[in-house]
């Protein structure tokens, strides 16, 4: 009899322990975690390196000394279709290649993300008109930072969304100046664009699990995206012109992909 009781107790133990380790009942309400986004600039199938010459499809080549762009309004969607928007006042970032680590990655850490399994990320390239209209309000030290990093014109003109400085060569010129300083032009031209990228595998955010999203940005797409452009033909100096800035803004949308998600 004792043995039967003992066996029963043992079985009960096994049942309880198997239930308690079941993930289906995991309650994530109110739980928070972090996400790291690693921006990794490249050119086609090469890593991006300052001062290295890269070719465009039009037979021109370019070398860069500066490579920066603005990312804002990051939001992520989970496998239930719910979207988590990162708080607006913190949701703008300068991605500067010069800040990269040895692997050339620029890390953006988002804190206090709702614990969930995320499948999609959306972000803006540049600054949208609503944020621009806020002026200094609610922007914290971002204005000072953008100014310091050379990502602003005068206030009436606004922010620079992408900033590339270097030189280019073509059949006709060698090492001519190349400066792509494009953004919206005040309220006259809106070059803010958004991209939505699906994640190749889910990003699992938990209190103790910080997934890393490896975002590859193919700089070549700026010149060879939806529209291929030639430096010789008006694209070596891109600043406030409505047409050329718009072409670069649209091309920038083709730059990004989430290569993989690394879960803990």
């Amino acid at each position: 009899m004792k043995i039967i009781k003992f066996t029963f107790a043992l079985l009960l133990c096994a049942t309880i322990s198997s239930c308690s380790s079941d993930d289906d009942t995991e309650n994530l309400t109110g739980k928070l975690g972090n996400i790291i986004i690693k921006f990794d600039n490249g050119v086609d199938d090469q890593d991006f390196i300052f001062g290295t010459s890269y070719n465009t499809s039009s037979g021109e080549s370019y070398k860069l000394e500066t490579l920066k762009y603005l990312i804002s309004n990051i939001r992520i969607k989970d496998n239930n279709g719910d979207t988590f928007m990162y708080p607006s006042e913190k949701n703008v970032f300068i991605i500067d290649e010069a800040d990269g680590n040895n692997a050339g990655e620029i890390w953006v850490t988002l804190n206090d993300i709702a614990a969930a399994n995320y499948t999609e990320i959306t972000f803006g390239i540049g600054i949208d008109q609503d944020r621009y209209a806020l002026g200094a309000d609610g922007q914290g030290d971002f204005l000072a930072k953008a100014e310091e990093e050379g990502m602003m014109w005068s206030w009436a003109t606004g922010f620079r969304f992408t900033r590339l400085d270097g030189t280019y060569s073509s059949d006709t010129v060698t090492d001519e100046a190349l400066n792509i300083h494009m953004g919206s032009v005040g309220t006259a031209v809106d070059n803010y664009r958004e991209v939505t990228l699906s994640l190749p595998n889910m990003a699992i955010v938990r209190e103790d699990k910080t997934p890393e999203l490896h975002v590859k940005a193919d700089i070549a797409k700026l010149f060879d995206g939806t529209t291929s452009v030639s430096f010789d033909e008006g694209y070596s100096q891109v600043h406030v012109d409505e047409t050329t800035t718009g072409v670069i803004a649209n091309n920038a949308m083709d730059m990004f992909m989430v290569h993989h998600v690394h879960n803990d």
């Binding site: 090469q46 890593d47 070719n55």
Partner: peptide
């Protein structure tokens, strides 16, 4: 430094990318 992701990039480098 692992800068070339493909063999095509490597051979393009040998053809026209040396400095």
């Amino acid at each position: 430094d692992g800068r070339f992701a493909t063999l095509e990039a490597v051979l393009n480098f040998y053809d026209s990318g040396l400095v």
